[in-house]
């Protein structure tokens, strides 16, 4: 099957800055794809390359098998939901939504019907006569979504669409976006710096750093088997084990990662395991996170509520099952 979007060795350099550096990427049709990374990692530039706002310095971009390099944004069957929504303040909601149809020359009656349908899809029926300035942040977001969907794009790009919303609304929109994507079957490409958002919404996640993709995989793969220290650190809160530590306790001289819930704390001063000292405790509700100092290495363990808790300053011994240690690809 032809991928919806494919990048072959795509680079976008701004002077000496390699915003995107030799990225290979394939996004399947109908997929909910997340690009995750810290700011400046190149994820937004990748999105803008798909939209056509940026052109690659080198490499090949295809959208549904057709070359996209040099094609202006207005000739791509791709639409974007912008981070700041970018609604037109001089037009009312209905005209905002119908804008794409208006510039294509669709008759007024037909486009107002299509706009009303799109507004119903994002649960804002009857809001057509209002101006964007009269809407709340969450409503503006829905209008931006309707405006992008009214053109029936084959790929919908979302640039941190939930960033400006409060937590409650964000969670609600996450669910809605996901069900909307299932319902419409459109390929969604979604940029975020929030790993929780990426893991909970996407079918597959690409983790970006320094203009490169560090890892592509399902949320489970990314979370359980991070390929590099960066991924382990950025996605979730794994303990990162340096090669020396790994050699002593896991028998391999490689970088490793270990999830906090897989560390057991024994209240004894000697014995098999890693000697450590309790540095601090933080109560999380379902459990308590214990910060540990193991010969200069800072580790975190999570103890379920109800279990016996050590006190700060206690000397303890840490044990873990070697099968739970994930050995990363990154060379030592």
């Amino acid at each position: 099957m032809t991928p919806a979007v494919s990048f072959t060795k795509v680079s976008r350099h701004f002077g000496a800055v390699r915003a995107v550096d030799a990225v290979d990427l394939e996004i399947a049709e109908g997929e909910f794809f997340a690009m995750l990374g810290p700011s400046g990692s190149g994820k937004t530039t990748c999105l803008r390359l798909i939209a056509g706002f940026e052109q690659p310095t080198s490499g090949r971009i295809e959208i549904f098998g057709e070359n996209a390099v040099g094609v202006p944004p207005y000739r791509r069957n791709v639409n974007t939901v912008f981070q700041d929504y970018a609604l037109f303040p001089h037009l009312n909601v209905a005209d905002n939504v119908a804008y794409g149809l208006m510039v294509k020359g669709v008759a007024r009656e037909e486009r107002s019907r299509a706009a009303e349908e799109a507004l119903a899809l994002v649960k804002l029926p009857g809001y057509g006569a209002r101006k964007p300035g009269q809407l709340s942040g969450g409503q503006r977001q829905r209008v931006a979504l309707a405006r992008a969907l009214v053109n029936k794009p084959r790929v919908l790009l979302l640039d941190e669409p939930l960033g400006a919303l409060d937590l409650k609304l964000r969670e609600q929109m996450q669910e809605e976006l996901k069900s909307l994507q299932k319902q419409l079957g459109i390929t969604f490409v979604f940029v975020t710096h929030d790993q929780g958002e990426a893991l909970s919404m996407a079918d597959r996640v690409a983790v970006f750093n320094d203009g490169k993709i560090m890892q592509i995989g399902s949320p489970q793969e990314i979370y359980r088997r991070p390929a590099t220290r960066f991924v382990a650190d950025f996605v979730g809160s794994s303990n990162i084990l340096p090669p020396d530590f790994m050699q002593r306790y896991a028998g391999q001289r490689r970088w490793g990662s270990l999830r906090p819930e897989h560390i057991r704390i024994l209240a004894q001063t000697s014995g098999d395991g890693v000697p450590a000292r309790v540095a601090a405790l933080s109560y999380l509700g379902a459990g308590t996170r214990v910060s540990l100092d193991a010969e200069g290495l800072r580790l975190h363990a999570v103890v379920d509520s109800g279990g016996a808790l050590p006190a700060p300053g206690d000397a303890v011994v840490l044990t873990f099952n070697r099968d739970h240690v994930h050995v990363m690809d990154e060379p030592a």
Binding site: P73, T80, F88
Partner: peptide, 23 residues
């Protein structure tokens, strides 16, 4: 006038002239 408004217009299918006129 936010720069992304002009990009939004192009994204929705308007060429440079239409963007100038309508946005």
């Amino acid at each position: 006038t936010s720069g992304s408004m002009i990009e939004a217009s192009m994204d929705l299918g308007a060429d440079a002239f239409q963007t100038f006129r309508h946005v």
